[in-house]
Design a protein around this nucleic acid. Sequence first.
DNA 1: GGATCTGTCAACACGCTGTCGAGAAGCATG
DNA 2: CATGCTTCTCGACAGCGTGTTGACAGATCC
Lengths: 221, 221
Amino acid sequence: MPTTRATSEPPQTGRGRRGQRVSGDEREAAILATAERLLEEARPLADISVDDLARGAGISRPTFYFYFPSKDAVFLTLVDRLVQQAAVGQGDLRERLAEDPAKRWREALTVFYETFGAHRAVVIAGAQARTSNPEARALWSEVMEGWVADATLAIEAERERGAAPAGIPARELAIALVSMNERVLYATFADDAPAIDGERVVEVLLDVWLSAVYGRGEIPN
Amino acid sequence: MPTTRATSEPPQTGRGRRGQRVSGDEREAAILATAERLLEEARPLADISVDDLARGAGISRPTFYFYFPSKDAVFLTLVDRLVQQAAVGQGDLRERLAEDPAKRWREALTVFYETFGAHRAVVIAGAQARTSNPEARALWSEVMEGWVADATLAIEAERERGAAPAGIPARELAIALVSMNERVLYATFADDAPAIDGERVVEVLLDVWLSAVYGRGEIPN
DNA sequence: GGATCTGTCAACACGCTGTCGAGAAGCATG
DNA sequence: CATGCTTCTCGACAGCGTGTTGACAGATCC
């Protein structure tokens, strides 16, 4: 499926076109912009055709293939961008260790909520792509893995300094909590199923994180 | 898309064919069986064509449409079944109220793990269908809503009898926890991304449920 | 002023979905 | 045992979407 043309190709700019300088960069940008625009209208990802993308960018369908190897690659690029954006927002927090933990955790959750909330359409498309596109799945796995690693370290640090009690392996806990974040935020953004209101979602997630990390699951009675 | 033929139709048996007695029931069953079998091989749902289903059941493609209105309807039926199965398994627990809460919660989680774990392929297909098929999305929403309602009641009951402390609205907490279950179990079954080992997953989920419901998120220091 | 890029598209080959119309196959009943 | 009704079956078609090919225009460099 990749069918990456075997012509002499430099470093490879992004996930898109393989050429380098030419003004055609605008075209690439136009395709991306069209994709995001269409996602905000035509609901399901599958309902957007290569032709829609091409026409939206003012080119023909074959020309589209000059810039991107497939429709999915376009959305992959969109998701890629967003993920990097979130990583940047998170970056600052990583250093500032625990001193006012609750505040730190809330900040971290807020960054996710805001970064992804600002591009709901892309988030939703990403979730769709993930189920059908192996590359998308791999990308998202990697991203989640990163968050889990961060959370694991944070939990372990809190345990070591005596702030949090010992408990199940930090990594397992981190996976459960990060997964919860993913699913709950998705539902909130997609206004799907039983969802938590946007105003409340960070508060609710924080509550679960704090009790899971710092609380003991002791049952009275 | 439904295009339900307007011929005189009785009650409507399931989501499938509209006829009634005839031996063609075997055909319907064969299609369903083929669907589940193919899901266990050909990875993505999208890679299974109506033709595959038809051939697998020993009929031609047009004949398939006599039994099911579309490919999705077949998978919907599969999911429907599974969900009902899980409801049955859960049913017993609902009555037996809280006396050994930890044990009860563990049992409930175990039922999900085992019921869905026994049909991973269907679970995975359901998740895929949900992203692209409105009907599937609605069905799953309903199911989740049911679990959330149960969990909400259980949490409120525990709070009323003084076993659990007051906290954020029970429904919000229930949504977060049920969502976590969904996502984490899915990852485990699909062996996706950062996943928790099957042997451990119930234990881990239980731990988070117990601390979220019974614990206080107080941070020392 | 020819070689060589980048960029562009009409036309094609193919695969999949869903429908239509022409029947077989079963089973009543007069 | 026709005759008719319903159930069931499929060949053939229309339509849409993808991805590829091949021809060709305009820069640009030498």
